[in-house]
Write a protein that binds this DNA or RNA. Structure first.
Lengths: 220, 220
DNA sequence: TATCTATTCAATTATTTTATTGAATAGTTG
DNA sequence: CAACTATTCAATAAAATAATTGAATAGATA
Protein backbone atom coordinates (compact mmCIF):
# COMPACT_ATOMS: atom_id res chain seq x y z
CA UNK A 1 0.00 0.00 0.00
CA UNK A 2 1.13 3.50 -0.81
CA UNK A 3 2.41 5.50 2.14
CA UNK A 4 0.12 8.43 1.48
CA UNK A 5 -2.93 6.19 1.31
CA UNK A 6 -1.92 4.58 4.60
CA UNK A 7 -1.60 7.92 6.31
CA UNK A 8 -4.82 9.29 4.83
CA UNK A 9 -6.69 6.24 6.08
CA UNK A 10 -5.10 6.28 9.53
CA UNK A 11 -5.83 9.95 10.20
CA UNK A 12 -9.31 9.62 8.66
CA UNK A 13 -10.24 6.75 10.95
CA UNK A 14 -9.17 8.78 13.96
CA UNK A 15 -10.86 11.95 12.70
CA UNK A 16 -14.10 10.02 12.32
CA UNK A 17 -13.88 8.92 15.94
CA UNK A 18 -13.02 12.40 17.16
CA UNK A 19 -15.82 13.93 15.06
CA UNK A 20 -18.24 11.74 16.96
CA UNK A 21 -17.13 13.51 20.14
CA UNK A 22 -16.88 16.99 18.62
CA UNK A 23 -20.36 18.19 19.49
CA UNK A 24 -21.54 19.90 22.68
CA UNK A 25 -24.47 17.54 23.24
CA UNK A 26 -22.41 14.45 22.63
CA UNK A 27 -19.68 15.68 24.97
CA UNK A 28 -22.30 16.16 27.64
CA UNK A 29 -23.57 12.63 27.02
CA UNK A 30 -20.08 11.15 27.27
CA UNK A 31 -19.49 13.13 30.45
CA UNK A 32 -22.79 11.93 31.90
CA UNK A 33 -22.16 8.30 30.98
CA UNK A 34 -19.00 8.53 33.04
CA UNK A 35 -21.34 8.01 36.00
CA UNK A 36 -22.53 4.70 34.63
CA UNK A 37 -25.21 3.51 32.22
CA UNK A 38 -28.35 5.54 31.56
CA UNK A 39 -31.48 5.08 29.47
CA UNK A 40 -32.26 7.33 26.52
CA UNK A 41 -34.95 9.09 28.50
CA UNK A 42 -32.62 9.71 31.44
CA UNK A 43 -30.00 11.12 29.11
CA UNK A 44 -32.58 13.32 27.38
CA UNK A 45 -33.81 14.69 30.72
CA UNK A 46 -30.34 15.34 32.10
CA UNK A 47 -29.25 17.15 28.95
CA UNK A 48 -32.51 19.03 28.24
CA UNK A 49 -32.81 17.55 24.78
CA UNK A 50 -35.74 15.98 22.95
CA UNK A 51 -35.89 12.19 23.00
CA UNK A 52 -35.52 11.97 19.23
CA UNK A 53 -32.53 14.25 19.14
CA UNK A 54 -30.92 12.40 22.04
CA UNK A 55 -31.44 9.14 20.21
CA UNK A 56 -29.85 10.52 17.05
CA UNK A 57 -26.78 11.69 18.92
CA UNK A 58 -26.56 8.33 20.67
CA UNK A 59 -26.60 6.63 17.27
CA UNK A 60 -23.64 8.75 16.24
CA UNK A 61 -21.73 7.71 19.36
CA UNK A 62 -22.70 4.09 18.82
CA UNK A 63 -21.62 4.13 15.18
CA UNK A 64 -18.22 5.33 16.39
CA UNK A 65 -18.12 2.53 18.96
CA UNK A 66 -17.88 5.02 21.79
CA UNK A 67 -20.97 3.67 23.54
CA UNK A 68 -22.58 0.25 23.93
CA UNK A 69 -26.19 -0.70 24.59
CA UNK A 70 -27.99 -3.16 26.81
CA UNK A 71 -31.67 -3.84 26.27
CA UNK A 72 -33.98 -4.39 29.26
CA UNK A 73 -37.62 -4.57 28.33
CA UNK A 74 -38.59 -1.40 26.56
CA UNK A 75 -35.56 0.40 27.92
CA UNK A 76 -32.21 0.65 26.24
CA UNK A 77 -29.31 1.42 28.56
CA UNK A 78 -26.32 3.20 27.07
CA UNK A 79 -22.84 3.11 28.57
CA UNK A 80 -19.34 4.07 27.54
CA UNK A 81 -17.67 1.30 25.57
CA UNK A 82 -14.33 1.65 27.44
CA UNK A 83 -12.93 3.58 30.36
CA UNK A 84 -10.33 5.06 27.99
CA UNK A 85 -13.14 7.03 26.35
CA UNK A 86 -13.77 8.87 29.59
CA UNK A 87 -10.03 9.37 30.00
CA UNK A 88 -9.83 10.95 26.55
CA UNK A 89 -12.71 13.24 27.42
CA UNK A 90 -10.98 14.08 30.68
CA UNK A 91 -7.76 14.94 28.86
CA UNK A 92 -9.58 17.21 26.43
CA UNK A 93 -11.60 18.78 29.22
CA UNK A 94 -8.45 19.60 31.19
CA UNK A 95 -6.81 21.01 28.06
CA UNK A 96 -9.76 23.36 27.66
CA UNK A 97 -9.98 24.28 31.33
CA UNK A 98 -6.27 25.07 31.42
CA UNK A 99 -5.79 26.96 28.18
CA UNK A 100 -9.05 28.51 26.95
CA UNK A 101 -9.48 31.91 28.58
CA UNK A 102 -13.20 31.99 27.78
CA UNK A 103 -13.63 28.74 29.67
CA UNK A 104 -11.87 30.05 32.74
CA UNK A 105 -14.05 33.17 32.73
CA UNK A 106 -17.22 31.13 32.35
CA UNK A 107 -16.45 28.85 35.28
CA UNK A 108 -15.25 31.73 37.42
CA UNK A 109 -18.39 33.80 36.81
CA UNK A 110 -20.64 30.87 37.53
CA UNK A 111 -18.93 29.79 40.72
CA UNK A 112 -18.39 33.25 42.17
CA UNK A 113 -22.14 33.67 42.45
CA UNK A 114 -22.32 30.49 44.49
CA UNK A 115 -19.25 30.98 46.67
CA UNK A 116 -17.82 27.81 45.18
CA UNK A 117 -14.91 29.32 43.29
CA UNK A 118 -12.31 28.20 45.79
CA UNK A 119 -12.35 24.52 44.91
CA UNK A 120 -10.20 21.70 46.25
CA UNK A 121 -8.16 19.47 43.95
CA UNK A 122 -8.17 15.73 44.59
CA UNK A 123 -4.74 15.66 46.23
CA UNK A 124 -5.72 18.42 48.64
CA UNK A 125 -8.87 16.55 49.60
CA UNK A 126 -6.89 13.37 50.21
CA UNK A 127 -4.63 15.27 52.63
CA UNK A 128 -7.56 16.94 54.35
CA UNK A 129 -9.38 13.62 54.75
CA UNK A 130 -6.60 12.37 57.01
CA UNK A 131 -7.20 15.29 59.41
CA UNK A 132 -10.52 13.72 60.45
CA UNK A 133 -12.39 17.01 60.71
CA UNK A 134 -13.73 16.94 57.17
CA UNK A 135 -17.00 15.50 55.88
CA UNK A 136 -17.07 14.49 52.23
CA UNK A 137 -20.52 14.92 50.70
CA UNK A 138 -21.54 13.08 47.55
CA UNK A 139 -24.46 15.15 46.26
CA UNK A 140 -25.21 13.01 43.22
CA UNK A 141 -28.35 10.85 42.89
CA UNK A 142 -28.21 7.80 45.12
CA UNK A 143 -28.05 5.37 42.18
CA UNK A 144 -24.79 6.96 41.05
CA UNK A 145 -23.41 6.94 44.58
CA UNK A 146 -24.22 3.25 44.87
CA UNK A 147 -22.44 2.67 41.59
CA UNK A 148 -19.20 3.86 43.18
CA UNK A 149 -18.08 6.74 45.40
CA UNK A 150 -15.17 8.24 47.28
CA UNK A 151 -14.45 6.02 50.31
CA UNK A 152 -16.00 7.53 53.42
CA UNK A 153 -18.24 9.94 51.51
CA UNK A 154 -21.80 10.53 52.73
CA UNK A 155 -24.52 10.58 50.09
CA UNK A 156 -27.00 13.43 50.33
CA UNK A 157 -28.52 14.04 46.88
CA UNK A 158 -28.65 17.75 46.17
CA UNK A 159 -32.45 17.86 46.26
CA UNK A 160 -32.46 16.40 49.79
CA UNK A 161 -29.71 18.62 51.13
CA UNK A 162 -31.91 21.49 52.34
CA UNK A 163 -34.01 19.18 54.51
CA UNK A 164 -31.02 17.23 55.81
CA UNK A 165 -29.02 20.31 56.77
CA UNK A 166 -30.11 20.50 60.41
CA UNK A 167 -28.73 17.00 61.02
CA UNK A 168 -25.23 18.16 60.05
CA UNK A 169 -22.81 19.35 62.77
CA UNK A 170 -21.49 22.87 62.29
CA UNK A 171 -18.00 22.24 63.64
CA UNK A 172 -16.94 20.23 60.58
CA UNK A 173 -15.51 21.25 57.24
CA UNK A 174 -17.58 20.09 54.28
CA UNK A 175 -16.34 19.13 50.82
CA UNK A 176 -19.03 18.47 48.23
CA UNK A 177 -18.41 16.61 45.01
CA UNK A 178 -20.54 15.38 42.15
CA UNK A 179 -20.07 14.29 38.55
CA UNK A 180 -17.29 16.55 37.34
CA UNK A 181 -16.20 20.16 36.87
CA UNK A 182 -19.30 21.05 34.84
CA UNK A 183 -21.73 19.40 37.22
CA UNK A 184 -23.50 22.08 39.24
CA UNK A 185 -24.75 19.93 42.13
CA UNK A 186 -21.62 20.59 44.16
CA UNK A 187 -21.83 24.33 43.48
CA UNK A 188 -25.44 24.38 44.65
CA UNK A 189 -24.49 22.41 47.73
CA UNK A 190 -21.67 24.80 48.64
CA UNK A 191 -23.94 27.79 48.10
CA UNK A 192 -26.57 26.33 50.41
CA UNK A 193 -24.08 25.21 53.08
CA UNK A 194 -22.30 28.55 53.24
CA UNK A 195 -25.63 30.37 53.33
CA UNK A 196 -26.56 28.35 56.39
CA UNK A 197 -23.30 29.03 58.16
CA UNK A 198 -21.32 25.88 57.34
CA UNK A 199 -17.72 25.85 56.16
CA UNK A 200 -17.81 24.28 52.69
CA UNK A 201 -15.93 23.96 49.42
CA UNK A 202 -16.44 21.93 46.32
CA UNK A 203 -14.11 19.34 44.86
CA UNK A 204 -12.94 20.55 41.46
CA UNK A 205 -13.17 17.11 39.89
CA UNK A 206 -15.89 14.49 39.97
CA UNK A 207 -16.14 10.88 41.07
CA UNK A 208 -14.96 9.39 37.74
CA UNK A 209 -11.75 11.41 38.06
CA UNK A 210 -11.21 10.12 41.57
CA UNK A 211 -11.83 6.57 40.44
CA UNK A 212 -9.35 6.87 37.58
CA UNK A 213 -6.72 8.53 39.76
CA UNK A 214 -6.93 6.18 42.71
CA UNK A 215 -8.67 3.14 41.17
CA UNK A 216 -10.22 2.31 44.53
CA UNK A 217 -13.34 0.59 43.31
CA UNK A 218 -15.35 1.15 46.49
CA UNK A 219 -18.90 0.00 45.95
CA UNK A 220 -19.34 -0.81 49.64
CA UNK B 1 -26.52 32.52 35.24
CA UNK B 2 -28.88 29.68 34.55
CA UNK B 3 -27.41 26.20 35.01
CA UNK B 4 -28.44 25.03 31.57
CA UNK B 5 -26.85 28.05 29.92
CA UNK B 6 -23.65 27.43 31.86
CA UNK B 7 -23.49 23.81 30.74
CA UNK B 8 -24.37 24.63 27.15
CA UNK B 9 -21.58 27.18 27.03
CA UNK B 10 -19.03 24.95 28.72
CA UNK B 11 -19.61 21.98 26.44
CA UNK B 12 -19.81 24.25 23.39
CA UNK B 13 -16.45 25.81 24.12
CA UNK B 14 -14.87 22.40 24.39
CA UNK B 15 -16.69 21.09 21.31
CA UNK B 16 -15.35 24.03 19.33
CA UNK B 17 -11.82 23.12 20.37
CA UNK B 18 -12.32 19.45 19.61
CA UNK B 19 -13.93 20.25 16.24
CA UNK B 20 -10.72 22.04 15.31
CA UNK B 21 -8.92 18.71 15.73
CA UNK B 22 -11.64 16.55 14.22
CA UNK B 23 -10.32 16.49 10.68
CA UNK B 24 -7.80 14.10 9.12
CA UNK B 25 -5.58 16.83 7.70
CA UNK B 26 -5.54 18.80 10.91
CA UNK B 27 -4.75 15.71 12.93
CA UNK B 28 -1.82 15.05 10.64
CA UNK B 29 -0.67 18.64 11.12
CA UNK B 30 -0.92 18.39 14.92
CA UNK B 31 0.98 15.11 14.79
CA UNK B 32 3.66 16.64 12.59
CA UNK B 33 4.03 19.72 14.76
CA UNK B 34 4.84 17.38 17.62
CA UNK B 35 8.33 17.31 16.07
CA UNK B 36 8.71 21.07 16.46
CA UNK B 37 7.82 24.13 14.45
CA UNK B 38 7.39 24.00 10.66
CA UNK B 39 6.65 26.54 7.95
CA UNK B 40 3.44 26.42 5.92
CA UNK B 41 5.31 25.08 2.92
CA UNK B 42 6.99 22.34 4.94
CA UNK B 43 3.63 21.30 6.37
CA UNK B 44 2.05 21.33 2.91
CA UNK B 45 4.82 19.14 1.52
CA UNK B 46 4.79 16.67 4.37
CA UNK B 47 1.02 16.27 4.19
CA UNK B 48 0.65 16.33 0.38
CA UNK B 49 -1.76 19.24 0.50
CA UNK B 50 -1.91 22.46 -1.51
CA UNK B 51 -0.42 25.53 0.12
CA UNK B 52 -3.76 27.33 0.20
CA UNK B 53 -5.58 24.41 1.75
CA UNK B 54 -2.81 23.92 4.30
CA UNK B 55 -3.04 27.59 5.19
CA UNK B 56 -6.80 27.35 5.67
CA UNK B 57 -6.49 24.39 8.00
CA UNK B 58 -3.76 26.18 9.93
CA UNK B 59 -6.11 29.15 10.36
CA UNK B 60 -8.66 26.80 11.89
CA UNK B 61 -6.09 25.46 14.33
CA UNK B 62 -4.92 28.96 15.12
CA UNK B 63 -8.46 30.23 15.74
CA UNK B 64 -8.83 27.42 18.27
CA UNK B 65 -5.54 28.41 19.92
CA UNK B 66 -4.07 25.01 19.21
CA UNK B 67 -1.12 26.46 17.29
CA UNK B 68 0.98 29.60 17.51
CA UNK B 69 2.96 31.43 14.86
CA UNK B 70 6.36 33.04 14.63
CA UNK B 71 7.21 35.25 11.69
CA UNK B 72 10.71 35.18 10.21
CA UNK B 73 11.03 37.17 7.01
CA UNK B 74 8.57 35.81 4.48
CA UNK B 75 8.23 32.58 6.41
CA UNK B 76 5.68 31.85 9.08
CA UNK B 77 6.58 29.09 11.48
CA UNK B 78 3.73 27.19 13.14
CA UNK B 79 4.07 25.28 16.38
CA UNK B 80 1.78 23.64 18.91
CA UNK B 81 0.60 26.16 21.49
CA UNK B 82 1.14 23.75 24.43
CA UNK B 83 2.56 20.31 25.03
CA UNK B 84 -0.83 19.24 26.41
CA UNK B 85 -2.18 19.50 22.87
CA UNK B 86 0.15 16.76 21.75
CA UNK B 87 -0.76 14.75 24.84
CA UNK B 88 -4.45 15.04 23.96
CA UNK B 89 -3.71 13.87 20.43
CA UNK B 90 -1.66 11.02 21.85
CA UNK B 91 -4.52 9.96 24.12
CA UNK B 92 -7.00 9.98 21.24
CA UNK B 93 -4.53 8.18 18.98
CA UNK B 94 -4.04 5.41 21.55
CA UNK B 95 -7.79 5.13 22.05
CA UNK B 96 -8.17 4.56 18.31
CA UNK B 97 -5.22 2.18 18.04
CA UNK B 98 -6.52 0.10 20.93
CA UNK B 99 -10.22 -0.06 20.17
CA UNK B 100 -10.92 0.49 16.47
CA UNK B 101 -10.65 -2.83 14.66
CA UNK B 102 -10.27 -1.12 11.27
CA UNK B 103 -7.27 0.78 12.58
CA UNK B 104 -5.59 -2.38 13.81
CA UNK B 105 -6.11 -4.04 10.43
CA UNK B 106 -4.76 -1.04 8.56
CA UNK B 107 -1.55 -0.87 10.58
CA UNK B 108 -1.10 -4.64 10.48
CA UNK B 109 -1.49 -4.82 6.71
CA UNK B 110 0.90 -1.95 6.15
CA UNK B 111 3.62 -3.23 8.46
CA UNK B 112 3.44 -6.86 7.45
CA UNK B 113 4.62 -5.92 3.98
CA UNK B 114 7.65 -4.25 5.52
CA UNK B 115 8.51 -6.83 8.16
CA UNK B 116 7.96 -4.12 10.77
CA UNK B 117 4.87 -5.56 12.43
CA UNK B 118 6.73 -6.82 15.47
CA UNK B 119 7.34 -3.44 17.08
CA UNK B 120 8.95 -2.62 20.42
CA UNK B 121 7.17 -0.52 23.05
CA UNK B 122 9.12 2.18 24.85
CA UNK B 123 9.58 0.17 28.05
CA UNK B 124 10.97 -2.77 26.13
CA UNK B 125 13.43 -0.54 24.33
CA UNK B 126 14.57 0.98 27.59
CA UNK B 127 15.33 -2.51 28.93
CA UNK B 128 17.09 -3.55 25.74
CA UNK B 129 19.22 -0.40 25.70
CA UNK B 130 20.85 -1.48 28.95
CA UNK B 131 22.09 -4.68 27.31
CA UNK B 132 24.52 -2.67 25.18
CA UNK B 133 24.09 -4.75 22.05
CA UNK B 134 21.38 -2.55 20.57
CA UNK B 135 21.73 0.43 18.24
CA UNK B 136 18.92 2.96 18.32
CA UNK B 137 18.43 4.63 14.94
CA UNK B 138 16.66 7.96 14.61
CA UNK B 139 15.60 7.99 10.96
CA UNK B 140 13.94 11.42 11.02
CA UNK B 141 15.36 14.48 9.23
CA UNK B 142 18.43 15.84 11.00
CA UNK B 143 16.69 19.09 12.00
CA UNK B 144 14.16 17.13 14.00
CA UNK B 145 16.87 14.97 15.57
CA UNK B 146 18.74 18.09 16.61
CA UNK B 147 15.55 19.42 18.15
CA UNK B 148 15.58 16.49 20.58
CA UNK B 149 16.10 12.72 20.41
CA UNK B 150 16.34 9.54 22.46
CA UNK B 151 19.64 9.65 24.40
CA UNK B 152 22.27 7.57 22.62
CA UNK B 153 20.35 7.37 19.35
CA UNK B 154 22.24 7.69 16.06
CA UNK B 155 20.69 9.91 13.40
CA UNK B 156 20.55 8.45 9.91
CA UNK B 157 17.73 10.13 7.98
CA UNK B 158 15.76 7.54 6.06
CA UNK B 159 16.91 8.84 2.67
CA UNK B 160 20.58 8.36 3.67
CA UNK B 161 20.11 4.93 5.20
CA UNK B 162 20.76 2.90 2.02
CA UNK B 163 24.15 4.52 1.46
CA UNK B 164 25.13 4.38 5.13
CA UNK B 165 24.27 0.71 5.53
CA UNK B 166 27.73 -0.71 4.84
CA UNK B 167 29.15 1.27 7.73
CA UNK B 168 26.85 -0.54 10.18
CA UNK B 169 28.05 -3.67 12.00
CA UNK B 170 25.92 -6.77 11.46
CA UNK B 171 26.33 -8.20 14.94
CA UNK B 172 24.10 -5.57 16.53
CA UNK B 173 20.36 -5.37 16.98
CA UNK B 174 18.78 -2.27 15.45
CA UNK B 175 15.73 -0.38 16.65
CA UNK B 176 14.50 2.36 14.33
CA UNK B 177 12.17 5.12 15.47
CA UNK B 178 10.75 8.24 13.91
CA UNK B 179 7.83 10.62 14.50
CA UNK B 180 5.12 8.33 15.78
CA UNK B 181 3.03 5.25 15.01
CA UNK B 182 1.82 6.64 11.67
CA UNK B 183 5.24 7.76 10.53
CA UNK B 184 6.53 5.35 7.91
CA UNK B 185 10.25 6.20 8.08
CA UNK B 186 10.88 3.55 10.72
CA UNK B 187 8.94 0.96 8.72
CA UNK B 188 11.00 1.73 5.63
CA UNK B 189 14.17 1.52 7.68
CA UNK B 190 13.26 -1.88 9.13
CA UNK B 191 12.33 -3.17 5.68
CA UNK B 192 15.69 -2.08 4.28
CA UNK B 193 17.70 -3.34 7.23
CA UNK B 194 16.09 -6.78 7.25
CA UNK B 195 16.46 -7.04 3.47
CA UNK B 196 20.20 -6.49 3.88
CA UNK B 197 20.54 -9.09 6.62
CA UNK B 198 20.41 -6.93 9.73
CA UNK B 199 18.33 -7.71 12.79
CA UNK B 200 15.91 -4.82 13.13
CA UNK B 201 12.58 -3.76 14.62
CA UNK B 202 10.75 -0.47 14.83
CA UNK B 203 9.76 1.39 17.96
CA UNK B 204 5.96 1.56 18.11
CA UNK B 205 5.94 5.14 19.38
CA UNK B 206 7.79 8.23 18.20
CA UNK B 207 10.18 10.69 19.77
CA UNK B 208 7.46 12.99 21.21
CA UNK B 209 6.05 10.03 23.11
CA UNK B 210 9.47 9.21 24.52
CA UNK B 211 9.97 12.81 25.52
CA UNK B 212 6.63 12.98 27.32
CA UNK B 213 7.16 9.64 29.04
CA UNK B 214 10.71 10.24 30.24
CA UNK B 215 11.01 14.03 30.00
CA UNK B 216 14.74 13.69 29.29
CA UNK B 217 15.23 16.82 27.25
CA UNK B 218 18.40 15.63 25.52
CA UNK B 219 19.37 18.16 22.88
CA UNK B 220 23.06 17.24 23.27
C1' DT C 1 10.63 51.38 -6.61
C1' DA C 2 9.81 47.03 -9.08
C1' DT C 3 9.96 42.27 -8.51
C1' DC C 4 9.85 38.03 -6.11
C1' DT C 5 8.36 34.79 -2.43
C1' DA C 6 5.57 32.88 1.29
C1' DT C 7 1.34 33.10 2.93
C1' DT C 8 -3.43 34.56 3.42
C1' DC C 9 -7.93 35.86 1.81
C1' DA C 10 -12.38 35.70 -0.75
C1' DA C 11 -15.63 33.51 -3.59
C1' DT C 12 -17.63 29.36 -5.16
C1' DT C 13 -19.44 24.79 -4.98
C1' DA C 14 -20.13 20.28 -2.97
C1' DT C 15 -20.65 17.82 1.13
C1' DT C 16 -21.70 17.02 5.88
C1' DT C 17 -23.89 18.07 10.17
C1' DT C 18 -27.80 19.27 12.94
C1' DA C 19 -32.63 19.88 14.90
C1' DT C 20 -37.36 19.13 14.16
C1' DT C 21 -41.31 16.65 13.02
C1' DG C 22 -44.09 12.80 12.70
C1' DA C 23 -44.31 7.99 11.54
C1' DA C 24 -42.53 3.30 12.50
C1' DT C 25 -40.84 -0.44 15.47
C1' DA C 26 -39.95 -3.60 19.40
C1' DG C 27 -41.29 -5.02 23.53
C1' DT C 28 -44.61 -4.93 27.57
C1' DT C 29 -49.04 -4.82 29.89
C1' DG C 30 -54.03 -5.32 30.48
C1' DC D 1 -54.66 -8.93 20.64
C1' DA D 2 -55.28 -4.05 21.62
C1' DA D 3 -53.19 -0.36 23.90
C1' DC D 4 -49.16 1.54 25.69
C1' DT D 5 -44.18 2.80 26.24
C1' DA D 6 -39.41 3.59 24.95
C1' DT D 7 -36.80 4.17 21.27
C1' DT D 8 -35.55 4.53 16.43
C1' DC D 9 -36.14 5.91 11.73
C1' DA D 10 -36.99 8.90 7.62
C1' DA D 11 -37.61 13.22 5.54
C1' DT D 12 -36.72 17.95 5.53
C1' DA D 13 -34.48 22.38 5.87
C1' DA D 14 -30.94 25.27 7.80
C1' DA D 15 -26.24 25.76 8.97
C1' DA D 16 -21.44 24.51 9.00
C1' DT D 17 -17.39 22.40 6.79
C1' DA D 18 -14.12 21.62 3.08
C1' DA D 19 -11.40 21.90 -1.40
C1' DT D 20 -10.32 24.66 -5.30
C1' DT D 21 -9.20 28.68 -7.71
C1' DG D 22 -7.23 32.96 -8.36
C1' DA D 23 -6.44 37.46 -6.35
C1' DA D 24 -4.38 40.08 -2.49
C1' DT D 25 -0.87 41.06 1.05
C1' DA D 26 3.49 41.47 3.68
C1' DG D 27 8.09 41.30 3.68
C1' DA D 28 12.69 40.57 1.23
C1' DT D 29 15.66 41.49 -2.56
C1' DA D 30 17.55 43.62 -6.72
Amino acid sequence: MDKRIFKDKAYSILATMIKAMANPHRLEIVDLLGQGEKTVEEIANETSMSIANTSQHLQVLKAANLVEIRREGNFIHYKLAHEEIYISWQTLRELGLKHIAEMERLVKDFREKRNSLEALRMDELLTKMKSKNVVVLDVRPTSEYENGHIPGAVNIPIEDLATQLRKLPKNKEYVAYCRGPFCVFADDAVQLLIQKGFKAKRLEEGYPDWKIKFQTESIS
